[in-house]
Design a protein around this nucleic acid. Structure first.
Lengths: 205, 205
DNA sequence: CCAAGACCTGAGCAAATGCTCATAATAGTG
DNA sequence: CACTATTATGAGCATTTGCTCAGGTCTTGG
């Protein structure tokens, strides 16, 4: 465990363009290396090598290995952009288009690097603050989806909370595996949309 | 890289009961350690310590770290027992019970240690043969489910192959996360079954 | 053009890890 | 009991890893 840090991040803040470039090169390289080798086997030396930067430079911008993954996570969260409820169609019969928007969001959000995202989620040892931020983001997302489904007239499920959990998880998890599907992405999207729509519409008595 | 191995596994084969016990203790400990720390951070010394066995003993039964995870994978595959098609109900209206059987199978199969299974699947560096075995198993499973759906009168999907892929994946992936659900396992099972059943039944025109 | 700060370098340290091997303890057999 | 095959031990080696630091190179403001 590290001694009580006198500063959250005592590392140098870039003041010249070339420094910004170096920092970016390191992060880009780290994304690739973590994605290919996993977190533990993605060594800092490998990252530096791939970024064509000396190991010393790497440690001028990041206090330790964990902080690199943390920064990648922060960037991913900042970039995340979800369709807002006021852009959705709440008229009867439109449930499919609403679900499609959710699925598209998920696909877009994972397009950059699904492998890296998995590593960040499953292997990341983040600070309490960052973990809170991530948790809060997830909860907000679930709450938003819940609100959408609650408002939509076609949704008919036993328990809304459970259904939202299941839908969000299923969409997310399947999207992680998108690359593994043999079929084209369009087919995948259509089937996933169908699956969720039929589930949400409830028993077709 | 290891020199061309003159034997697949030159390690001693247990001849006394106490040796069998030691081997089992090592495997059990390995399952716990990998499950808790992941593969890379699950060190052989930690495994030996947890098994209350010296590191030397560990290497008397396993030629290297990889082979321990491989053995755990083999054991998991050997234990895997899926409901056979001839035990299913193919009468009209029974689709739900068929799907339920599939879901139960998945849940049973992951009950031992979902975390470990994830690690084996995502971090395992297995030999070509073992990888083939795993792939073949997966394909057999998909083929079996495909055959079941093909025979069942209630199944109505655009493309059977895609649907089977999606259903198998979705059931598997959600089961991985079973522990993360706030609801009881029964609720989870019911909702998942509903989701898959409604999807497979096709458009409720 | 020149100093001072900003940035970069990479040899190498301390710790950790996979694994070996010489030796000791134990079990089976007569 | 004695003798051998089997099993268990753990110090420690070679390598890898995260990371530091003493000293270099480049940029920029005056």
């Amino acid at each position: 465990m590290p001694s009580a840090s006198r500063d959250v991040d005592a590392r140098r803040k870039p003041r010249q363009v070339r420094a910004e470039l170096t920092r970016d090169r390191i992060l880009t390289a780290a994304a690739h290396v973590f994605s290919e080798h996993g977190y533990a086997a993605g060594t800092t030396n490998r990252i530096a090598e791939r970024a064509r930067v000396s190991i010393g430079s790497l440690y001028q911008y990041f206090p330790n290995k964990d902080s690199i993954l943390a920064e990648l996570m922060v960037r991913h969260i900042d970039r995340g952009t979800w369709t807002q409820a006021d852009q959705l169609d709440f008229s009867p019969g439109s449930l499919e288009s609403v679900v499609r928007a959710l699925v598209r969001d998920a696909i877009d959000n994972h397009r950059d690097d699904p492998q890296l995202l998995r590593i960040m989620i499953e292997e990341g040892q983040f600070s309490a603050e960052l973990r809170d931020t991530i948790t809060r983001h997830g909860e907000q997302r679930v709450a938003q989806v819940r609100a959408v489904f609650a408002r939509h007239p076609d949704v008919d499920v036993r328990d809304l909370d459970t259904a939202v959990d299941l839908v969000v998880f299923t969409v997310e998890l399947n999207t992680h595996r998108l690359a593994a599907f043999r079929q084209p992405a369009e087919t995948f999207e259509n089937e996933l949309v169908d699956m969720m729509t039929r589930y949400l519409r409830g028993p077709s008595a």
